[in-house]
Design a protein around this nucleic acid. Sequence first.
DNA 1: GAAATAGAACAT
DNA 2: TGTTCTATTTCA
Length: 654
Amino acid sequence: MITHVALPIPVRKTFSYLVPNTWVPFVKPFLRVKVPFKNREAVGFVVGIEEGCDKGLKEIQEVIDNFPPLDKKALQLAEWASRYYIASQGLVLGYALPPGLPIEQYLKIKVLAEIEPSGLDNLPLRKAYRLFGRDVVYKHYSNGLLRYYDTFTNKDFIPCSHEDVSDRGGKTLFLGNTNDRLQYYIIKIAQCLEEGKNVLMFVSNHHTIGQFCFDRLTEAFPGKVIRYGVSVTSKKRMETYFRARNKGGQIILGSRSCLFLSVLRNGLIIVERPEEDDYRNEAGFRFNAVNLAIKRAEIENVPIILGSASPPLDVYKRAVDGEINVIEKVYTIKKQPAEIIIEKGISTLGALPDELKSLLLQAVERNEKVAIYTPRKDYSSRIRCLDCKGLFLCQVCEGSLSYQKQRDALSCASCGKKFPYEECCRQCGSRLIQFSNVGVEYLEQTLGEAFPGVTIISAIGESLYENKEAFTKLSSREPVFVIGTQALAKPYGVKVDKLVMIEWEELQRIGGYRAMEKMFHILSSLVDVLEPDEIYAVMVRKKRVDLKGFFEIKTFYIGELEKRKNAQFPPFVRIFLLELEKENEVVGLRLVEKIKAAASEQGIIQHITGPLVQKRKKYRWRMIIRGNEEQLHDFLATVSIFPGVRVEADPVNI
DNA sequence: GAAATAGAACAT
DNA sequence: TGTTCTATTTCA
């Protein structure tokens, strides 16, 4: 017997192995098998079986599963995702069932008849495998002489017995602020739980948004919320794994890692804030979990609710097209947002503008809480020598370096490497260094000096979790400044008096084709979470952006859709980014030619823009492929396995 | 994706 | 002819 195995590597072909006699009765489609690969071992999925025993193939070492570890609908979802994201079947399946998921660790054996060897009853599966061999246990299992039960629910482990309960389906976009959304979710969840169904709810982030939702939902449904994700311990995670597939009437709250989780009587899927970047998986199998959640709902015929104050544009388009039903409960702000126009940016000014100072001074006098947003986190993200005019660049990749005051280190924006800060220019040794493009750290320090005695909290991605207690200061009576990047919109349940946006308009320069959409998301999510009574945008006159355009949601979206349609950009066509990196220009250009040749051959050359060459330490070519995915699929699948080529579906940063 | 191998550039 | 680096191939 020969089996074809899909391995979790970016290679489209499958690998064939012989099946030794011991395993022949147990090899079935979509079970995992351990196989020799190169000179190591690998875990792959059986995707094909054929008779025969020829041509010196290697043998599989072991069949890891006794039952398909993914149910039919999860497999269907994986198949769809594999095509949509141009990822190999093995890579997607490997994500769906990560190798670190210790399923057997929490399963025990229940013996149903008299069998040899004795002593299997109540034995942990792992131990039984070790003592008697997997094949012995598998044989009894397949003859129906024993069953498994998990140690959390003590219920029989029934692989893939998913009764379809939902007769509903349907997609809803709930437009509204956090409180309204939560209320709506709670009503819908209550209906499901009453009917004994489960609810699968996605959040982008465990620590902040996830914790908040967990607290609020636990309040409404005590003991019913179970979590699944990397931030809970392995044991807790496994408990959720078994409870989700064995019991009804619960809310499974998790991140993108529960996209493929088996859920018994799944009655509803909720996606909280689908516009969040954290829904994107960047390693290995790259995808956007919102897309997959919507697809899962379709496959399972389960209703899905997407809840947001500023949904992604593609979701809004689906709503306009009538595919998604809309419930609108738009927030209102108490006072018209105000624009504070300054002549020169804070970066170039070297000091805080007077208008900003007086605004903050007034706030301090009134003991107000002020949230200050800025797009950059470090002290300065542009460091220049004033003598030789050279920029500080990374020694490894020549990306631009930013200065992190707290660590007194330079950090590379493109490769992430850190270097000590020497206080002099590496080119000419001059000590006249100019910091510009300042961020949160700079404001933190400058405002600290200008307003001694005022509590200042910073909210940036990494530090947010440790900083959580600091946020309790926001409910004190003293004035508080909370300064941060987009992370400011993560800790739900915070309330400020004023929201000040600084250099927010910069995003139109760095945001690519989604610049306006990003600006909208940031502003809306800040307003949604922080509930400011007053909003101010400090903008440089030359780059001024009309704030009003961002407060009429419908007008904004319709206008943006119109622009995208005219320019033939997503969500009207799909975009793929093709990236290749080589040290040698000639070698790279050869590869570019090879790709172009493949494109001509398949008649899709007119869909390619570029390549755009970037030369730092390495050469990097980027091509953008736009068009109908059906038409592009074969081409992308072909070039995606060229060495050094990376295809990114639906890129966000171009 | 990662290891083995082929190839290029440089030093001995 | 050895050494070290990068590019390419291959994995069953």
